[in-house]
Structure formats: C-alpha cells, structure tokens
C-alpha cells in the first residue's frame, strides 16, 4: 500500500508521519507538496499536524484552498482512506470533508501530553484492529482542539456512529469529549491526538500503530487477491 504525506508550508509532523509509515508500519510512503495536481498513484492520504500557513486567520483556513486539496476531495470521494491529524483534522473541517469546527482550548493553554482515548467505534477502516471501547494512550499537542458542532450535527454524528475516539478525561473542552470523527461514508478520519507519535513503546506508547495497521488490513482485503 502506498501512502502520501501531504506537506503544507508550516507542516511539522510530516516527518513523524513518514517515519511511522515507512519504518514502523513498513509500507510505501512519499511526501507530496501542497501544490500537487494528482494523488492518483496513492492508496491512502495523510494530512499531518503542524501550523500550515502559520495558522493565520484560522487553523487550516488557508491550507484548505491549496491546489492539492482538490485532489484530497477527489480521493475522499473515491473512497480512499484519508486521515487528518491535528492541523490535518482542522484542514479537513475547514474543507468541509468533516462537519464542525475547532475553538481555542477551554484553558487557552497549548496542551502537549499523552491522553487516554476510548475507541468508540472499532467498525471503521481506521480502527478494526482495536477492541470495542478499548482505552489507548496517544499524545495530544494543540492549542485549538476544542471541537464544536451544532446540536443537529452532534445528533447525526452519534446516530451514524461517526464519533470514533473520545477523551477519557477531556483536556480541551471538546463537545461530547470528541477526539476524532469520521465522515458518513467512513473513509475520512480527523483526530486531534497524534497516532504517528505513538508507534514505538520506546517513546511511551505503540497504541497508534494499530490505527495504521487497520488501514492497511482493510485495503489489503479489498485490493489484494488471497489476502
């Protein structure tokens, strides 16, 4: 399986994402610059964390109009797995690929620490390798991860089981403890915690690796004969 790590000016978790895929997951991966005009050759699209365009105006607001985002939309429509982490999640929200928006953390502090997440839905292409309601430890690092959507949207997220990860102890004021959501189709995941920073026990946790393994397993089952 071949992944693309999209690099915007100001991305800073792109190298971690690349490392997680290449060295820990053992799959093919390439960096793709924000002005790329095609993502056809990639099977999975990864939008890393960071501060694209300096977070000017709003997090993700300017990156969302990058040339490559038209291709990310196409990839999402084609059913390819699209994962946005942290700033990547914010870009997916701004692009309208996921519902809602991010506010400043309730405490106004930038929060950088490992947090416990509950796997609310393990029936997605991103979470198949986790147990239902499993608690996993993944680090967060953000100043604007306080998820918000209106009541109607929240009801729809709940009804369609689109809330994939919740915080066990809400660090940022996020609505309904939301840490990660998928789109209705289930192939676009946005999450504030960084699974790519939790792929080796040496660094505190390897709980994030299963997320990437889930993507690969789902893809193999669909694309490789006798998988």
């Amino acid at each position: 399986m071949k992944f693309a790590v999209i690099v915007f000016p100001g991305s800073n978790c792109d190298v971690d994402m690349y490392h997680a895929i290449k060295d820990e997951l053992g799959e093919e991966v390439e960096y793709v610059w924000h002005d790329a005009e095609s993502l056809d050759e990639y099977d999975g699209i990864l939008l890393p964390g960071g501060f694209s365009y300096g977070d000017y105006l709003r997090s993700g607001a300017i990156a969302r109009f990058s040339r490559v985002m038209q291709e990310v939309v196409k990839a999402a429509e084609a059913g390819k797995p699209v994962l946005g982490v942290c700033n990547g999640f914010q870009i997916l929200l701004e692009a309208g690929l996921l519902p809602g928006a991010m506010r400043r953390n309730e405490s106004l502090s930038f929060i950088c620490k490992p947090v416990d997440l509950v796997v609310q839905n393990n029936q997605t292409m991103f979470t198949g390798e986790y147990q239902p309601n499993q608690t996993i430890s993944i680090p967060v690092a953000h100043g604007e991860g306080n998820y918000y959507c209106d009541e109607e949207t929240l009801a729809a997220l709940k009804a369609n089981h689109q809330i994939v990860f919740t915080y066990r102890n809400n660090p940022n004021g996020s609505l309904a403890d939301i840490a990660g959501i998928v789109n209705e189709k289930g192939n676009v995941l946005g999450m504030m915690p960084h699974p790519e920073r939790a792929v080796d026990v040496l660094l505190g946790s390897a709980d994030g690796l299963k997320l990437f393994q889930s993507i690969v397993k789902t893809w193999r089952e669909a694309h490789v004969v006798n998988a």
Binding site: I62, L93, C149
Partner: peptide, 8 residues
C-alpha cells in the same frame, strides 16, 4: 468562503 467560518 474564507474570512469567517460560518460554523462558529
């Protein structure tokens, strides 16, 4: 389109 996010 850009200056405001109508969600919030």
């Amino acid at each position: 389109k850009l200056l405001a996010n109508p969600v919030i």
